[in-house]
């Protein structure tokens, strides 16, 4: 678990560079409150306190990663209650949550604070002035995410704001764009994901199918596949959220279908739905299907017994 945390640190550091120290504070608040909620819940339920396993830390980091950098600092605290208490411990603790806790927290925040969650974006800083956004009222600074511009105003406005094709790819891949705290730096997320792959903590099945489906379907719908992958939270979602062990299926075939499902729903919500970014809800919608998929695509038995077991 701590390896995953380590992989999440570089994107966080990068976001401090582009959005200021504020993102670090939000992440810290989120992590601390997640850990605190976990510890308090386990104490109250008289169960062993397992904050040391790092799962609450990951939840906290991911929760902070999927909210805009300009939100009030207390916001992630409420999200963490939903994520860790309601989303995880009420359902029996780690291993039994149906939905990804961090995303559940985000969905809850989306429903409760729609304004903050959909408009508190900050334009990236290019001058390493990391204390910039601390004192200024956030309202005055808000901008729009690339996907929101693309969806709301079209390609022309997008190009006007973020630049034309080859440059915008590099910018976005490096992370110079507005967005959620942890989703901007494609490069660092991919590196983190590749490291996890290399260490064998995750398999390629889910991230690859998710990203491929997003790119392919966006292409079919006439969009720019590369932008579709780079401009939103697709990389963060594909590498760090969709293949969360607990809430994704375990057998390989099921994982492939799950990945395609996540990708397809993401594109569907992005193009036809009510939100500019859809991967959060796409993962949440596929999560409850993973027990079903696991049942449908059981691993092939070496030698199953004919007509049921007798003994």
């Amino acid at each position: 678990m701590w390896t995953v945390v380590a992989c999440l640190v570089p994107p966080l550091v990068f976001s401090v560079f582009i959005f200021g120290i504020r993102t670090l504070i939000i992440t810290a608040v989120s992590v601390v409150s997640c850990v605190a909620v976990e510890a308090i819940t386990q104490k109250c339920l008289k169960r062993p306190v397992t904050v040391k396993d790092g799962s609450a830390v990951i939840t906290g980091m991911l929760l902070a990663f999927v909210i805009p950098p300009g939100v009030p600092l207390w916001l992630p605290i409420l999200g963490s209650v939903m994520a860790v208490y309601v989303g995880k411990h009420l359902l029996g603790g780690i291993g039994f949550n149906i939905f990804n806790p961090a995303l559940l927290g985000r969905a809850f925040l989306m429903a409760s604070f729609p304004v903050a969650m959909t408009s508190a974006w900050l334009p990236p800083l290019r001058d390493l002035a990391i204390f910039s956004y601390l004192g200024t009222p956030i309202d005055a600074l808000t901008t729009a995410t690339p996907l929101a511009v693309l969806k709301g105003q079209g390609m022309a406005a997008f190009t006007a704001q973020f630049g034309a094709a080859p440059n915008v790819y590099t910018d976005f891949f490096l992370g110079w764009r507005p967005g959620c705290i942890g989703e901007t730096s494609g490069l660092l997320l991919v590196l983190g994901g590749l490291y996890l792959l290399y260490r064998g903590y995750i398999t390629w099945h889910i991230p690859v199918t998710v990203l491929a489906t997003i790119a392919l379907l966006t292409r079919v719908a006439g969009g720019d596949p590369l932008l579709a992958v780079l401009a939103g939270g697709a990389l963060l979602g594909a590498f760090f959220m969709a293949n969360d062990y607990v809430t994704s299926p375990t057998s390989k075939m099921a994982q492939l279908i799950y990945g395609v499902g996540v990708g397809a729903l993401t594109v569907l919500i992005r193009l036809k739905g009510g939100y500019p970014e859809g991967i959060c809800y796409a993962i949440l919608l596929m999560n409850p299907l993973s027990p079903v998929l696991d049942r449908w695509f059981k691993p092939k038995r070496f030698a199953p017994l004919q007509g049921g077991a007798k003994k």
């Binding site: 036809k272 939100y275 919608l285 409850p288």
Partner: peptide
């Protein structure tokens, strides 16, 4: 707990809101 799980489902289904 069934209610709470159903609530979580409903949260996830918010993703479909506004879909045309």
């Amino acid at each position: 707990i069934a209610f709470i799980v159903a609530g979580q489902f409903a949260l996830a289904f918010l993703g479909f809101s506004g879909l045309s």
